[in-house]
């Protein structure tokens, strides 16, 4: 199965710019489906970004983060070819991780 995580990480000299898109419903728990039943809450709580074994960003999300969430940030360092590990955990304990290469 294809990964739920897509990452674009670009090293430009001193810093690395990271953009990530995650496929996730981010259900708040207050939305009803077409049969009138509540769709249970199902949203990502944390996303960790690690470069060279070091945390470069910790995102904490509530249900107000949009479906198929997007995040953009930058950190000092990082070189072309370096691995960037992205891991999310949601409120149901589901998780996914991806090791992306910095371009």
């Amino acid at each position: 199965m294809a990964s739920s995580i897509r990452v674009r990480a670009q090293a430009n000299g001193k810093t690395t710019e990271v953009q990530a898109l995650i496929q996730h419903p981010m259900d708040s728990g207050f939305v009803k489906d077409s049969s009138g039943k509540l769709i249970p809450p199902h949203h990502i709580e944390t996303v960790r970004f690690e470069h060279a074994g070091k945390l470069v960003l910790m995102a904490n999300w509530g249900p107000a983060v949009s479906k198929d969430p997007y995040i953009k940030f930058a950190f000092e360092g990082g070189a072309k070819g370096d691995p960037l590990v992205v891991t999310w955990v949601d409120n149901l304990g589901k998780t996914d991780t991806l090791t992306a290469k910095i371009g």
Partner: peptide, 23 residues
């Protein structure tokens, strides 16, 4: 629920974040 997102920035991470929220 007031809080939408909270980011922890270790040393070396630039003070700049972009994301998409529901309102």
């Amino acid at each position: 629920l007031t809080l939408a997102a909270s980011y922890t920035l270790p040393a070396g991470t630039l003070p700049s974040i972009g994301c998409r929220l529901k309102m």
